[in-house]
Computed example of a mutant assay.
Amino acid sequence: METAGYIALFFVGLLLGTLGGGGSILSVPILVYLFSLDIVTATAYSLFIVGTASLVGSVLKYGTRMIHIRTGMVFGIPSLATIFVTRNRIIPSIPEVVLRTDNFSCTKRTVILIMFAVLMILVSMAMIAPHTQMMRKKNQTSTLYMVVAGIVTGFLTGLVGAGGGFIIIPVLLYLTGLPFKTVVGTTLLIISVNSFAGFTGDVFNRSIDWPFLLVITGLAVSGIFIAGYFTQKLANDQLRTAFGWLVLATGLMVLLREVSFGFGLVFV
């Protein structure tokens, strides 16, 4: 199983570089199901993996002028602050067993993964929607909307331990009207900052297996270098739709697995 996990982590970087997101969508299930990590450790490691790969990707995108700096700052700074507080304060305060009755027990792992899956499914519907329904005209969105969206996104991504690309991309597409490839570059910049902020919060709360983490991060980074080839070959609409279907498929997989796990093993 671990061999499959190492291979899959290479594709995490490939997806990040090509689609601007999807890294956390895959890395969290990979770390939980293939490496048997607990959910909080998996989300912490996912933040570091995705943050490092996204940083490399954003540097590459900046060289091709596919980053909108102002959008990244207006959206990213509020998101950065919120994700740090969420990972450092809110996540550690959630008990391991959220709800227990005589016949039912609901754990932190199940709650986070089900929220993760539902969020992915909702976002995927927006990504797969016709292009005209997704986009807003440029300059139509106020700075206040961007700040509020950044705060909400920071809380959600901090809660599920994701870099947030699968949330940030549809939000930026709708609020800014920027081309998909520019949104990808801007999202990678935001993800890198947010992920490292979230991971910093985890460093103070748990021990980190640095040799293992650096190896799997290196695999993801190697994938992002190859992603540039695929980005040049595909159009904006093709990338957006492919990303949407990936999010939907993964969300359904995680939801079905966790619901089956909960009802099959938790009820007594």
Rank of each mutant, 00 (worst) to 15 (best):
Ile151Trp: 09
Met115Arg: 06
Phe261Asp: 06
Thr52Ala: 03
Thr157Phe: 11
Ile39Asn: 14
Thr250Met: 07
Ile168His: 11
Met120Phe: 03
Met146Arg: 10
Ala8Lys: 01
Leu119Gln: 01
Asn205Gly: 04
Leu14Cys: 01
Leu60Met: 14
Phe263Gln: 02
Val28Asp: 00
Ile168Gln: 07
Val28Phe: 10
Leu173Asp: 00
Val74Asp: 00
Thr110Ser: 15
Lys138Met: 06
Arg136Lys: 06
Arg257Val: 08
Val12Asn: 00
Met66Arg: 15
Glu2Val: 09
Phe204Gln: 15
Val28Gly: 03
Leu31Ala: 14
Leu252Lys: 05
Ile39Glu: 15
Leu9Pro: 00
Leu178Gly: 07
Tyr229Pro: 03
Pro130His: 09
Val50Arg: 11
Gly154Ser: 06
Ser93Leu: 13
Thr18Glu: 02
Asp102Pro: 03
Leu122Trp: 07
Ser79Phe: 12
Met125Glu: 05
Gln133Asn: 12
Cys106Lys: 09
Phe225Asp: 13
Thr217Met: 03
Arg240Asn: 04
Ala249Asp: 02
Val56Asp: 05
Gly164Asn: 12
His131Pro: 10
Val193Gly: 03
Thr153Trp: 08
Ser222Lys: 13
Leu16Glu: 07
Met135Ala: 07
Pro170Gln: 05
Ile69Val: 09
Gly198Ile: 15
Leu239Ala: 04
Val183Lys: 09
Val59Ser: 06
Thr182Met: 13
Pro130Asn: 11
Gly76Asn: 04
Asn236Phe: 03
Thr231Val: 14
Glu258Ile: 12
Gly158Trp: 08
Leu15Gln: 02
Ile128Arg: 01
Val12Ile: 12
Glu2Ser: 04
Met134Val: 13
Gly17Leu: 02
Thr41Gly: 14
Phe263Ala: 11
Gly264Ala: 07
Leu47Met: 14
Leu80His: 07
Ser260Phe: 09
Ala249Ile: 04
Ala220Glu: 01
Leu156Pro: 00
Thr18Val: 14
Phe104Leu: 03
Val50Gln: 07
Pro179Lys: 13
Gly72Ser: 06
Thr52Ser: 03
Ser93Arg: 12
Asn194Phe: 11
Gly150Gln: 05
Val254Lys: 14
Leu156Lys: 15
Ala149Gln: 06
Val98Asn: 08
Val59Gly: 12
Gly150Asp: 08
Ser124Cys: 06
Pro130Phe: 02
Leu189Asn: 04
Gly218Trp: 09
Ile83Trp: 13
Ala249Trp: 05
Val123Asp: 08
Tyr145Asn: 04
Phe199His: 13
Pro78Ala: 05
Thr143Met: 00
Val254Asp: 01
Pro211Lys: 04
Phe11Leu: 07
Gln140Pro: 05
Ile169Glu: 01
His131Glu: 10
Thr52Glu: 00
Thr64Arg: 09
Gly5Val: 09
Ile226Asn: 02
Arg100His: 05
Ala249Val: 06
Ala8Arg: 10
Leu188Val: 10
Gly76Asp: 11
Ile30Trp: 01
Phe204Asn: 01
Ile121Ser: 14
Phe10Asp: 04
Thr86His: 15
